[in-house]
Amino acid sequence: MSTVNHEEFERIWKGPAIRIGVVTVVVPMLMCFLPNVYLYVVHGVFPPWGVAFKAWGMIAAIFGAFYIVEPISYYPILGLTGTYISFLSGNIGNLRVPCSAVAQEVVGVEPGTPEAEIVSTLGITGSVITNLFFTTLAAIAGATLLSMLPVSIANAFKNYTVAAIFGAMFGQFTLKYPQLGLVGLGIPVALALGAPALGLPFLAQTWVLIVASVFGTILVGRIFYKAHII
């Protein structure tokens, strides 16, 4: 379907995509410290460096593994542009990945092709626009609008949307590769239940579960593909 070769696509897509990505990730990352600069300049307040580093250490102890594990584990799903967009704007599992997948499904592109990369990017950018609209609306008139929504409906959205979307995504892809669906769910369940029972509780840590689930399923996919099972 493509009329351009691999090198040509690299030149017109990959190069600009990396340049846009690095700049639009690094600049906001630094700007996130501006609220602290404001507090220091206007009110003369900043925690002593000892406290600041202690807080950094405490939060990195909780999330540090995810800084590395998540970009790597989500990469095969999100691709180049998808990773820059998703790790800047967040909401990866509940928004970016589903929107990329739905866009590719609706347009009907073959995964792994330049066309799929383009459509995935557009699906994700579309989701960013919608998402920014709603967060801006919440910032401007959130409390007023929320008070107009019946409590039961607000609670249903708050408590159940994420679980329903996770289930839906799993369903969509299980339909394509049912064997891999079993593997994808089987690995984390087996580790979460089996590892503590075998006296290996460190294997049931969240970041281990993510890595084992994603790369374990890819590995089994490779074996099944080579064996012509899928």
Partner: peptide, 12 residues
Amino acid sequence: ILSSAAILGCFG
């Protein structure tokens, strides 16, 4: 298969 397997592992 690679990207679908990654999605199934992730959402699994």
